[in-house]
Each structure stands twice: as C-alpha cells, then as structure tokens.
Design a protein around this nucleic acid. Structure first.
Lengths: 226, 226
DNA sequence: AACGTCATGCTGACGAAGAAGCAATTGGAT
DNA sequence: ATCCAATTGCTTCTTCGTCAGCATGACGTT
C-alpha cells in the first residue's frame, strides 16, 4: 500500500501530531526526511492523501489530519475513547456512527457573484450522507439574495452541489457565465442556446450561447438554519 | 490541521469555557495570546471556524462555541461522532470526525395530521450540529403539503424541531390543536387568542383560544434533498 | 542492452496564507 | 446616548504550499 518513504513521512507526521498537536510544515518534513526540496514532500503528501491515510485542506498551512494508520504503525486512529456525553442530547444514541459527511462551504452565490468568491473555503458543514451520491464530488454554497425564492431557496440557505457538467432541462445548477460570474439558476436548453431562469418573477430569464455557459454542478440538497 | 497559534487560541477558549462557562471576549483573547490588536484574534477565530472547530454567531458578543477539539486537546466534545466513509474513493478523503448528530424523524406533518402520526420514529437523519442548541431536545418531521410554501418550506422537506413550549410571535412552530392535530404554522398571539397562520394564501389563518393550542416545538432547521 | 515506468530527488520561482499592527466603523447592550 | 465588543480596511513581513522542469536509480519488459 505504501512505499517506505510514504510510511516514513506518515510516521513522522503522526509523531509530531502526538508530541505537540501541530502538524509539521513542508519545510519541517523536508528536514526530517533529509530532503533538500519541499516538492518531494508535496508528492508524498499527495500520495498519502490519495491512499486515504490523511486528509487536508488545500492551500492552508499545516492543514493535515491523519485519518488512519497502517497496521505497521499501530492500526487505526479512530476515537477509541467515546466519552459518555455530558448533558447528553437525549433522543439520539451517542455511540452510534452518523451517516453524514463534512463538506466545505465554498463561499456565497447569487446572481452576479464573481467566480473568485466561490474559490475559498469559508467553513465546513455536515450534511446527511443520504443527500450525496455514491460517487462524485460535492461542495456547499451559501445563497445570497432572493432570486430562487419561489423554488423554496431563501437568502442564507446552504445549498449542496454535486460537481457535474451535465444537467437536464429544469435542473437547478451552478452555472459559470462567460467564465466570469457564477449563478444559481434553473437551466433550459433550446437548440444551441441556453436559458438561465431565476425562480422569481422579478428577475428575467437570460439566454446565452452554449459556449458562454459552463455548468459547474447540480443542486442536490439544501440546509437552512433558523 | 491547526497552526500553533490557532491551537493556542482554541486551547485558551476551551479552558475559559471549562472554568467559568463563558467564552472570552476578543480583548481577553488578545491579552492571553499577547497580541496588540484584536484583528489578529479575529483572523484566528475565522480560521478555527473554517476548520470546523468552533461555531459562532456573527455580531454577537462572546458568541463562540466549541464544536470539537483536536486529538491533542483531549479529543471530542459532545455532539461529535465518527463518520462511516460514504463511498470514498480517489480524491475525496472522508472526514474522521463530523460535527453532526442523528435525529429521529417522527413522521409527517401538515395541516390536519393526527398526532399519532408523529409518535413513532420512521428513520434517522443526520443534521449539522450548528443547527442545534446546546441544550434542549430535538427531533425531525417530514413536511406534507404546500401550506408553508411561501416560507420556503416545500412538500417533502425535513424540518428540524426543537422541543419547547414557548414561542415568539412570528415563529414557525409545531402546534397541537385541541390535543388532536399537529400542524406546522406561524404563530401569533393577541390577548388570549392564538392565531395559526399558514404561509400560503390558499389557507386561511385560524384562531383559537389559548387553551386549545399547545406548542410542541419550534422550527430550527430544514433539510431538503433533491 | 534498450526501453518504459515509477518513485524519488532537486532547484527555483511564485503566489497565497498566516500573523501582526493601526485606525475607523458598525452593532449590541444598557 | 454611550460604552464596549466586534468587524473591516489597509499595510507589512514572514511562512508556507504549489508547481514546472529536469535528473537519477530501480525494476521489469522487450
């Protein structure tokens, strides 16, 4: 499963995590493995992530977390000590595993939001696993404005998006228009033109050529907190 | 996952929370970390929120809550549970711990559903911990019908309810009318009478005497799967 | 022996993120 | 109205992660 170097690195990260709770930086790992460049570390880290041993946030300092360890390093890392919950939430069994997954909230979306805004993680939300497809990447966005209000999507709602470039007529999608702005709209195709329709009579449907619109993902879920 | 500064701050907040139950103010954190400006604290807090360790209310003093702790600070805090890996391949590593909780879905609700229907658990849903209050019992219901459509609550949505018998004017509540039927409506009180108002002009507002209506819980969240 | 693949190694450049500070403003509470 | 807390804009410096490009040695195949 792992090469020697990958194992060494994983071991080092694990040790550091145990010792002072903060994962090492690439430079520190570089020194530890006696390399002269960080790029080697970069590839090893990527490999570890691919193989499901660690989890990380892209473009964040020291944002590495160990998910599991190979047998040779002492097995799993899962929370062995499931502490009896103080002030237990009652109705739900505390020890049970939860069918959910954390998704990154990539920013806000509305009519006319620049794409840059949906390129960084603002925080994480948990979403029920039943909302997600078995395969496919998902992410979340916070909705701004009332352009989809008649579809029951309100200002402040979190929408869960499945990444895809295909969509059927009438699907609600995140569409990138002219490589510039990302909007949440209903999509309809007619011949070579694409219509993006808001669910609010106050906004008018806009039509584009096929090559002007790129579907980023499809709406699969919605979460609202009052 | 965290840088040293971020970990220090999280540790400080956690300690203060344990000691006197109240989260520190930005100024107190500033002093604790030996900074000269609060803006640094603001950034660290933002990073912690992004990484899913704390939860907060914007524009509220000391409105910080710890959702989970890194292993180095003693692992989990209440509502945290292990996640099974929902079909996790390739580039999408799953989270090890998730800030979520399972709630029982107690049945369906609409205008005129008999109370019996909301007395048995049909299945469980996972909801983000950020949707729930620290104390208080919660449960979920599936919405039937379009009586709340203008409030963005559609047929088939799952609503998350916090059990309480108090509600402010305008809150959406689960109300038990005449001990008979449970409905999801907006509540308004006027003198000794209680008005239950649908969010759909097709349904008319109904008025009752105070003793005819019992509030079962208040709407705190909504989950929709497409 | 020659070749392709793979894991690894190295350098250097680049841009993004973290951290810190000051100042001004907004928002809540009382 | 006034105080305090929180938020935001702007600046500066440091730390960190990413990437393109090229090199090497191990291994198995042709």
């Amino acid at each position: 499963m792992l090469t020697k170097k990958q194992l060494d690195l994983l071991d080092f990260i694990h040790t550091r995590l145990q010792k002072d709770g903060v994962p090492p930086s690439f430079d520190e790992m570089k020194v530890a493995l006696d390399l002269r460049s960080k790029s080697g570390i970069h590839r090893l880290i990527t490999a570890l992530e691919e193989r499901g041993f660690i989890r990380r946030l892209a473009h964040r300092a020291r944002a590495i977390e160990i998910i599991r360890l190979p047998d040779s390093l002492g097995g799993t890392v899962e929370d062995v000590a499931e502490a009896p919950t103080p002030a237990n939430q009652g109705t739900a069994p505390a020890a049970a595993t939860i069918a959910a997954m954390e998704l990154p909230v990539m920013g806000r979306i509305a009519a006319g939001v620049p794409i840059e805004a949906i390129n960084q993680i603002s925080h994480q939300v948990a979403v029920p696993a039943s909302m997600l497809s078995a395969q496919g990447q998902h992410f979340a966005l916070e909705v701004r404005g009332d352009s989809m209000i008649e579809a029951g999507i309100n200002d402040g709602d979190i929408v869960v998006i499945r990444e895809t470039s295909v969509a059927d007529d009438g699907d609600v999608v995140v569409a990138l228009v002219e490589g510039q702005e990302a909007t949440l709209k209903r999509i309809y195709r007619k011949g070579t033109s694409v219509a993006l329709e808001a669910a609010n009579p106050a906004y008018e449907t806009r039509r584009y050529r096929q090559d002007q619109v790129k579907v980023q993902g499809r709406l699969v879920g919605l979460i609202r907190t009052y």
